[in-house]
Amino acid sequence: MANDVGALVSVPGIARWFVRTWPRRIAIAMVVVLLLVIAAVGGFARVPPEPVRQVAAGEVVDLGPYTVSVESFFVSDQVDVYGLPEEADAWIGVVMELENTQLDGLFVDYQNFTLDGAQLVEARSTTVLLLADDSRASFLSPNLPVRVAMLWSVVDPDTIGDEVRLSLIETYEDTSFLFEETSWYVGDRIGVVEVPRDDDIPPAIVDEEP
């Protein structure tokens, strides 16, 4: 028996094992026919990616735990002056309204937002400022809509045009199989906003000259 092991695990050996009996031959034939049928009806064709929905500025979009309505963006080095990273020249602030639609308070998930159209220092924003009084607004209370500026630090702010593209990525709630806890998971990109520029910065968030 031991002498046969080498022959058995060789490719011809395995192939011979597969076609040794009639039931095996029939099973293989059925699998082949199934694959051919799937190919014939186009089952292996690539699904074209769904076109990303264009979202107008001001439109309310449900991201899962909260809704967002994007208004405009500004470029400035006069807001959150002390928070600006050393290697950055300015902030892009995207003005938006956020409303938590859940029963519990929750933090803004920065993975819901990606920005194109500027040279970002970090891909993800880390700061949300409340326009009313310049406080941090990353914690959202249920049904208390807030107008905020979400900040990304950038270099070469002069190259930024009149529009930036903000992609909105949804998060969905799911229950962990192991721990039976629900939490939010990153989902698909559900919309893109061409954000218009408006450098009229809400005065409350402008820092005084040091």
Binding site: L103, D104, S135, R136, F139, S141, P142, N143
Partner: peptide, 12 residues
Amino acid sequence: ERGRRYAITSRD
């Protein structure tokens, strides 16, 4: 009454 939960404001 609807079960919405509010923490102490972090605003100031």
